[in-house]
Amino acid sequence: MTAAPVAFPEAPPAPGRIRTWLASPIGAQVTAIVVFVALWQLLTLIAPRVPGPVDVTQFLYTEITGGSHGGIITGEFWEHFAVTLRWFSLGLLIGFVGGLLVGVAIGSSGLARSLLNDTVLVLLTMPAFVWAFLTTMWFGISWRAPVLTVAFVAFPFVAINVAHGARAITPELKNMSNAFEVGRWKQFRHLILPAVAGYIFAGLRFAIIVGWNAVLLSEWFSGQAGVGFRTRYWFDANRYRGFLGWVIVFIIFIVVLDRVVLNRLQARAFRWRDPIEVDMELAEIEQVGA
């Protein structure tokens, strides 16, 4: 028996397309950015020493296209950026390879774990600026300082994540594939690699984020060239629009790199898992030290 047709209350008229877009996730984020810039501009009215978004954008335009800032020679933007990227990549490579080796050792051998885990933990807890100081004390004004700062800072993050990944290959899975007499290469490709790849990638991603921070710190303190050096140059000259301009450059670089590129790649590597769980697990690994 069906009841007499029930009329649901009339749905309210659909909101205009603009309102729908505004309420959507992307719309909300764009609104947030717009609000932030507006607030920033307002801030300059209260604190006139703080350069506003317009000033900073002007500065950046001049700096990047190679004009002159009212008599001060422009900073050879691309040259400095390239220098920083070179040091960053080299240090990252060293830290990543080292972390990979130690991480695999810790993950697969109980003895290696006992010996190395606490050392890695100590290195993990050391603030990046300490490495910037130490390398400057060791090498003075040299390319070795920023490169090794990045390496030392990135190394423990890679090691810890790789170790965790290596341990994710449970004996049960190994037994299962042995029971089915799966060939060694197949085992590697389908069992070990996918399980570990995600963690290796996560370690690399952490390494990139902290490594970028590290290279900036080292350049700031050891003062030879690069993005960090230029930032300090403008800061020391009390020209805050220049300082903020370079700050924005390095923030945009890492935010774009991380959120647009690395995020997607990590999701692919971990696509058999729930993304929120993955983020939380990775944060825990770093905190608890595997």
């Binding site: 909300a28 947030a32 950015i33 990046a128 991380d258």
Partner: peptide
């Protein structure tokens, strides 16, 4: 809505290098 609105600044804040904050 507010979840999405605040997501952007919160996420960006997490990626800002420490040097920026300190200086």
């Amino acid at each position: 809505y507010w979840g999405n609105f605040l997501q952007a600044p919160v996420v960006v804040a997490g990626s800002i290098p420490g040097l920026t904050y300190a200086v």
